[in-house]
């Protein structure tokens, strides 16, 4: 009885804590799966960038030979440190640092000849917001918040397995639900196996 109580509480409290993530993954999947219905587009909706500012800016020569170091410096100077990608080289007329955010990506373009920094921002879009959160994963970025998010993704993965196992355990404690539950489990498993063999 004590084990069953622990299983029930674990199932419930993990579910309550991770409810925002699991809801986000489900809703974003539906949006991606039915793009035309939700956005009217067949491809990912990407709101156009809007120019925010253009200002004089001279990159510190000490970081100008490294795209990685230059990008981090530019982002820090703009107050936008975080996950990003770069295009071009810092000594060119167009060194682009894209600071990816689900709420709207910032694009910073450094012109080494004109010594200017242009900032553009992508307006918030609900479909893109959900899709970017859904696709955010991995430990590739060197920022703590990104590593923590990747840890949470692992926690969600582990939680799904825990929900599945604890759910089976709790179902087996319900004698009145065994017959119909077995039929559901068998039907689902058979259908899944059929798909695995055919697709």
């Amino acid at each position: 009885m004590r084990v069953t109580l622990i299983v029930r509480r674990t199932h419930l409290f993990i579910g309550l804590f991770l409810a925002p993530w699991i809801t986000m993954y489900a809703v974003s999947t539906l949006v991606m799966h039915h793009r035309v219905l939700f956005t009217g587009l067949e491809e990912r909706a990407t709101p156009a960038f809007v120019k925010v500012s253009e200002r004089p800016y001279e990159l510190d020569p000490a970081v100008a030979d490294s795209a990685t170091a230059a990008a981090r410096r530019i982002l820090a100077d703009a107050g936008l440190s975080g996950a990003h990608e770069t295009e071009g080289t810092p000594r060119s007329v167009s060194f682009i640092v894209s600071r990816y955010r689900a709420t709207g990506t910032d694009r910073l373009t450094y012109d080494a000849d004109a010594k200017t920094l242009t900032q553009e921002r992508q307006p918030f879009g609900l479909a893109l917001f959900l899709e970017m959160l859904h696709r955010r994963h991995g430990f590739q970025q060197s920022y703590l918040v990104n590593d923590l998010w990747a840890v949470i993704v692992d926690v969600v993965i582990a939680a799904i397995v825990v929900w599945a196992i604890s759910g089976i355990w709790m179902w087996l404690q319900l004698p009145g639900a065994r017959r119909f539950g077995t039929a559901c489990l068998a039907l689902g498993s058979a259908a899944f196996a059929y798909f695995l063999l055919r697709l």
């Binding site: 969600v156 993965i157 799904i160 397995v161 929900w163 599945a164 759910g167 089976i168 709790m170 179902w171 319900l174 639900a177 119909f180 539950g181 559901c184 489990l185 039907l187 689902g188 498993s189 899944f192 196996a193």
Partner: peptide, 15 residues
């Protein structure tokens, strides 16, 4: 309960 049992393989697969 029954939805979870029916879709159990998909849930585990996505995880």
């Amino acid at each position: 309960t029954y939805l979870a049992l029916l879709l159990f393989p998909w849930l585990v697969m996505y995880g």
